[in-house]
Nucleic acid binder design. Structure first.
Lengths: 224, 224
DNA sequence: TATAAAGGTAATAAATTCATAACAAATTTT
DNA sequence: AAAATTTGTTATGAATTTATTACCTTTATA
């Protein structure tokens, strides 16, 4: 997935320096010089992240932030303000307006880049909860309770679906048996010790043996 | 997860005002009136965040901070100082003592709350990365229960993984046999005297002999 | 109601992990 | 140097953990 970042500042110098640093990290950078332009471009380009100066002509960052927050398609966009150190008031107003974080000026390129990475990591983790998950040639649609494997639709019984869903939510991660019981069966239900294995077996039959790796003494993981 | 905040100040007014603001945001607030009490309560309650005045009777904030930083269970706790504007020296000393941030007095409630939120968000982000440890060309991934050595993936049985995990958690440190048994096998399990050696041997085979140094009469250590 | 499907259990098989014993080698103490 | 202590190595079998199958109960479906 290509990542778009909208950079908003009225100082061309800042746009250039910050933009350069982000571009060289492989991000697609779009710029705007004031709030009005920012809102317009945000709507059109749907960036994942907006880095915006607070003080700007035409429309300040706070107001632009509020307007952007009201665009439903952009509800998952992360908005970060650029603010001069010590501008206490603007910080408060910014959080009220729906900002997610702050970057203080003057901006050190390395700090900026690592902050951006951290923010995008957060975005990624949040998007895990979306109802459609794709891993390789497997698609899991929680909304419709079905999975698609190589163009072919497979319907799974509830427990199998939940189990697959859990494991596939973090490919590679080993889920402990205890954790699986908790999340798929619920922590109040008590089931026998071989129940998970049997369900794993059924999934292996239907989805493919190689997708489910056993880690003895620990649990299972889904691999791509 | 419920969040506990330890608030330390010798002025009851501050405790009340700040405490009220944090409580009404849904945080669990614990208070202490001096450094000695702060250390004691920190140890007992294990708060995620400590907000502490620098100037206090009995034991000042700097010293309390140092003591708290030496409690291993609290290594991930964020410590923030309350400091009067312009007290530059205390800031420097505070960072040396292991403080993470500063809040200047007089405290504006909204600033305080948004700062606390930002700090806790940071805490959350840091804890995500804890499951991956890198030492030289060895990467240990506790989440996926696997290790990567020079681009190559190695899967270890549980005990070997736990043992490696322990030793590598503090490269250079010698872990006593007793300590290893405690942490890898659990203090209730009794195993024979050669068990650790055998596991070390297997790790030496798989990871490399030179990584594991024997300290006769004491235990083993991991070296880079 | 009959039938099928889902979900769980129990019994047994298979595989892996791990502890141990027995001895060798190295190191320290006497 | 000899004895004692501590660690290294290996093979082996017991214990643990997982896989598989058949079967039973419950729930949903026709």
């Amino acid at each position: 997935m290509d990542i778009k970042i909208l950079l908003v500042d009225d100082e061309p110098d800042i746009l250039e320096i910050v933009g350069y640093n982000l571009s060289s990290e492989g991000y697609e950078v779009i710029t705007a010089e004031n709030g009005v332009e920012a809102v317009k471009k945000a709507k059109k380009e749907k960036p994942q992240l907006i880095i915006m100066d607070v003080m700007m002509p035409e429309m300040d960052g706070i107001e632009a932030c509020e307007q952007i927050r009201n665009i439903p398609e952009l509800k998952n966009t992360i908005i970060t303000f650029l603010t001069a150190r010590g501008e206490d008031y603007s910080q408060v107003a910014g959080f009220d307006a729906g900002a997610d974080d702050y970057i203080t000026k003057p901006v050190k390129p390395k700090v900026l880049v690592s902050k951006v990475k951290a923010l995008l990591r957060r975005l990624k983790e949040e998007s895990i909860n979306e109802s459609i998950v794709k891993i390789g040639d497997l698609t899991i649609n929680r909304d419709e309770y079905k999975i698609v494997l190589k163009e072919e639709e497979i319907v799974l019984p509830r427990k199998e679906f939940e189990l697959l869903s859990l494991l596939a939510s973090k490919p590679g991660k080993v889920f402990k048996r205890e954790e699986i019981l908790d999340k798929v069966w619920g922590n109040e239900v008590v089931v026998g010790g071989r129940t998970i294995d049997v369900h794993i077996r059924k999934l292996r039959e239907k989805i493919g043996d190689h997708c489910f790796k056993t880690v003895k003494g620990v649990g299972y993981k889904f691999v791509d």
